[in-house]
Write a protein that binds this DNA or RNA. Structure first.
Lengths: 204, 204
DNA sequence: ACAGACTATCTATGGCGATAGATAGTCGGC
DNA sequence: GCCGACTATCTATCGCCATAGATAGTCTGT
């Protein structure tokens, strides 16, 4: 159900076409939620049927048309209902930790690469999110700008603060991952330091 | 493909029935990976077809039988190949952060509850994982005991260390979540402190 | 001897999501 | 006036996963 709410969230800022949403999922909002277009278009159609959004065809060039969706009152209510619900957590399913738990079976070199890749990945994400926070804080983010236009400054600040805070959460988690992976590099170095160290290749 | 590798990982310790696997996914290993039985049994059948595991019917009581699976050499190879691959990361899809980013639409009380629930959830997980680490360190964990039996102490230590380290990673991440959520409580308290503060209920 | 808890396995349905590929129109630049 | 990049939308398939429910045997205690 989160895809639906991610779409509603976006449409609270301004009316958008499926393609606009898709683009946003690849950049800004995409750092928190992502979906391919093959999921977006059908979901928008279903949401229209459910009365959460309303679509209107708008001209695009001479012959082309596109469909722009606006959130309805029912859509806002549904979105708020979701926000007010207690969160639900699914059971853990963590491929990274799963692998880490069995590194005695891996090649030591591959284990080092694994942690190095983990650090690189999360460092890159931190850069993305920091940049995102920058565009939020200076209001150069177009979606945010649309969202706060015409609002009193306190509301604008409040809206911005929650978004910044969400990205700070992503950064905090990524930092924890990096620290952990650095510990992993140390651990592998310590445990596999001898030349003759090799992965277990004999089951049982 | 991670379910398959989680199953292989478990079977490197000892032969197991589908039900054994299911039980483990509800407790010990379940803190890192989880799957319902309706996923486990068919996947085991497919893995047997692919030659990664071998099943044998064993008697159970007078009339009953159960199927116990052992990992094959091909299974070990496949598992190691996975461990040596570079990790792949999917795009972000974070319902918690998604919600946090739009709390201006939520009821302040619900926002507080949201962060409180987040803290409670992750605190509970930390307790689980700490207990898990305890049973690993003192070798009272039966799966680990089976896994290291007959192995020289250095190997036993190495095997244990990776497992402990994986759970430490879970704990580190959970701590980051708790810290973030505490910041969330402060933020909501600060932004919504006035009595007349209420969620935006006017779209556009 | 029976109840109740547990072991063991299976099927069905539906949503979510990844991947791939198809179609068609627009717009800017050479 | 055509090409290439982009906008806009759609379909199909497949694997993963949640949820629900069915079946049948075992084991323990009263």
């Amino acid at each position: 159900m989160s895809l639906r709410n991610a779409l509603l969230a976006m449409l609270t800022s301004q009316p958008m076409t499926g393609y606009d949403v898709y683009k946003n999922f690849q950049t800004s909002v995409g750092y928190v939620w992502h979906a391919p277009d093959s999921q977006i278009y059908p979901e928008l159609r279903r949401m229209e049927q459910d009365g959460l959004i309303r679509g209107e065809s708008v001209a695009w060039g001479k012959r082309g048309t596109k469909k722009r969706y606006s959130i309805t009152e029912a859509g806002v209510e549904s979105f708020q209902r979701w926000l007010n619900e207690p969160p639900d957590y699914q059971r853990e399913r963590d491929p990274i930790r799963l692998r880490a738990a069995y590194l005695e079976w891996a090649d030591p070199k591959a284990s080092m690469d694994f942690f190095t890749a983990h650090i690189a990945y999360h460092s890159a994400r931190i850069d993305d999110w920091k940049e995102m926070i920058r565009t939020l804080r200076d209001h150069s983010n177009p979606t945010l700008a649309k969202r706060i236009e015409g609002k009193p400054p306190e509301d604008a600040d409040r809206i911005t603060a929650y978004k910044v805070f969400a990205y700070e959460g992503m950064i905090a988690r990524a930092r924890a991952e990096i620290e952990w992976a650095e510990g992993g590099l140390d651990l592998v170095g310590k445990l596999e330091k001898t030349d003759q160290a090799k992965p277990l290749d004999d089951p049982q």
